[in-house]
């Protein structure tokens, strides 16, 4: 699978349909890289002309902004906007809710106006248009999937149904946790908590959330955010349930359903 950058498209005088915003986790975190590849495979399989910024992409600035460092955030944001406006980017799809939120809500007043979609919404659109057809759903038969709402997709932008609609395609039982949708419990990573030790307390937030997930007796915890994915994977490990309960991104599950990915349940 050849991944083309926006620079390569521009050099060839072509315009891609979408910019796939990979994000820092998707680029560097080994677990999140798998999600990036799974999503790229879906796009590739559907012959969607997509580009990445590659080495021209930098962090959107989200963790700095939420930590309180507006200066670092805007420095990165203005650089990214300069690059994207230079290429004439119109439509962005990203697999990270933090990138999605900041690109959609906070970039416009800095001069970055794009149509921004999270991959949950994009995958739902592709399913609705009949472009994604799942041929390989046998492995999901009789399985239970519980979806964990990412704060930045859910409460922050009120996207609750798209990821669930995507998961419904898998022919598995979709079960809800005690707190879900607008009342979904945070995984503990947001607000730059991912990058520091917890403040003193009696429990880690990801443990509290994993408890809720395990209560559902699900075989699969579906995430739509690389940070939630890490937090829940760690949580499942701390209960030593990693052999029975797997954490996957919705893109990995769909790619598996299309026969593009071989995931082990």
């Amino acid at each position: 699978m050849k991944i083309r950058t926006y620079a390569e498209y521009a050099a060839a005088g072509e315009t891609p349909e979408i910019l796939f915003w990979v994000g820092c986790a998707g680029s560097f975190d080994q677990r999140a890289q798998k999600v990036t590849r799974a999503f790229a495979k879906i796009l590739h399989h559907l012959n969607i002309k997509f580009a990445v910024l590659g080495t021209e992409e930098t962090c959107t600035g989200d963790p700095a902004k939420r930590a309180g460092n507006e200066f670092v955030f805007q420095m990165l944001a203005l650089q990214n906007i300069e690059v994207m406006n230079g290429y004439g980017v119109k439509k962005i799809v990203t697999t990270c809710p933090h990138c999605f939120n900041i690109l959609k809500n906070e970039y416009p007043s800095l001069g970055g106006n794009y149509e921004v979609l999270h991959h949950a919404t994009y995958l739902q659109q592709l399913i609705d248009e009949g472009r994604i057809k799942l041929t390989d759903t046998d492995r999901f038969k009789g399985k239970r999937i519980t979806y964990h709402d990412s704060c930045y997709l859910g409460r922050a932008n009120e996207i609750y149904e798209a990821p669930r609609r995507v998961l419904e395609e898998l022919d598995a039982a979709l079960v809800e946790m005690k707190s879900c949708r607008s009342r979904g419990l945070c995984c503990g990573a947001g607000g730059a908590q991912m990058f520091k030790e917890d403040e003193p307390g009696n429990k880690r937030i990801n443990i509290a959330r994993t408890e809720e997930a395990l209560e559902t007796q699900a075989n699969i915890i579906a995430a739509a955010c690389p940070f939630c994915n890490t937090m829940l994977t760690d949580g499942v490990k701390s209960f030593e349930k990693q052999d029975q309960v797997k954490v996957f991104d919705i893109a990995e599950l769909i790619a598996a359903g299309q026969g593009l990915e071989n995931i082990v349940l």
């Binding site: 990979v22 820092c24 680029s27 890289q33 080495t55 930098t58 991912m194 990058f195």
Partner: peptide, 13 residues
């Protein structure tokens, strides 16, 4: 990036 990875490695995935 929030981690200490080189920007040149962004496309390594």
């Amino acid at each position: 990036a929030p981690w200490q990875f080189s920007q040149q490695d962004r496309l390594n995935w």
